[in-house]
Simulated assay, not measured.
Amino acid sequence: MNRRLAQFDLVKPKYAKEDARMKAFYASTDYVNGLAEQHLGFIWRETEENQQLLDQLWGEGYLYTLSLWKDVESLKDFLYDTPHKAFMRRGGEWFDSISRPRVVLWWVEDGHIPTLREAHSRLTRLYEIGPSYDAFDLRSSELPAVLY
């Protein structure tokens, strides 16, 4: 079975989209998405975000990224070894802290496109039982727990 890494990231902006304090974030999204799409390990990302469903699943005001990657190493390389890292460092300027995990990873069969409902289920599983093969995060991606 060929597998791909599904990635979901949930954030809650501190300010409205029109607020001047969010200008740098929104001005950078096309650039950062372009970096991801040009990365060798990138496969797909959702471009038609379903804000209505997102609001139903998590409450109003959240943003998300849902994407597919070749493997964990490719995702980590994009996150930490490209200009994306500088934008991650600024996350505290733009986003509220979320007390629960806000990023979840899981394996999917090659050709499967993950859905927002699927991401919700996986993130909920990570909240409730912790890292497992079915739902893990970057810190637990190399632990034995993801192997069972």
Results as ranks from 00 to 15, higher is better:
22 M>T: 13
81 D>E: 12
46 E>N: 14
37 E>C: 06
117 R>V: 15
48 E>I: 01
116 L>H: 10
103 V>S: 11
49 E>Y: 10
107 W>D: 02
82 T>F: 05
22 M>F: 04
107 W>I: 05
117 R>H: 11
100 R>P: 00
125 R>G: 02
31 Y>R: 11
75 L>S: 09
15 Y>C: 07
24 A>Q: 14
42 F>Y: 14
123 L>K: 07
116 L>F: 07
41 G>E: 01
57 L>Q: 06
31 Y>S: 07
47 T>F: 01
44 W>K: 12
62 Y>W: 10
36 A>D: 08
36 A>M: 15
54 L>F: 07
73 E>C: 09
81 D>A: 09
127 Y>I: 03
98 I>C: 00
82 T>P: 05
122 R>V: 00
73 E>P: 03
98 I>Q: 05
101 P>M: 06
116 L>S: 10
17 K>A: 09
72 V>I: 12
104 V>I: 07
110 D>H: 05
45 R>T: 03
40 L>R: 07
43 I>D: 00
108 V>T: 08
110 D>I: 01
88 M>S: 10
41 G>P: 02
17 K>D: 01
79 L>D: 03
123 L>P: 02
95 F>A: 03
112 H>P: 14
91 G>H: 07
74 S>K: 06
100 R>Y: 05
16 A>L: 15
73 E>M: 08
69 W>D: 06
15 Y>A: 09
17 K>T: 10
84 H>C: 11
39 H>F: 02
53 L>G: 02
27 A>L: 13
29 T>S: 13
14 K>M: 08
32 V>T: 11
78 F>K: 01
126 L>A: 10
68 L>C: 03
78 F>S: 04
68 L>I: 00
71 D>T: 04
50 N>F: 02
84 H>W: 09
42 F>K: 02
29 T>P: 14
19 D>G: 09
112 H>K: 14
104 V>S: 10
85 K>H: 08
63 L>V: 13
28 S>A: 15
57 L>S: 05
54 L>I: 03
92 G>K: 07
17 K>G: 03
112 H>T: 11
99 S>L: 10
25 F>M: 13
16 A>E: 14
101 P>D: 01
115 T>P: 00
20 A>E: 11
13 P>D: 05
77 D>F: 01
82 T>Q: 11
43 I>W: 02
24 A>F: 03
90 R>K: 15
103 V>W: 01
120 H>M: 00
90 R>M: 14
106 W>D: 00
124 T>K: 04
124 T>P: 01
16 A>Q: 13
89 R>P: 00
27 A>Q: 15
103 V>M: 15
83 P>G: 05
103 V>R: 13
35 L>W: 12
118 E>K: 12
119 A>L: 08
123 L>I: 05
27 A>S: 14
36 A>P: 08
108 V>M: 06
62 Y>G: 08
109 E>W: 02
79 L>M: 14
54 L>P: 11
53 L>E: 09
109 E>M: 02
51 Q>F: 06
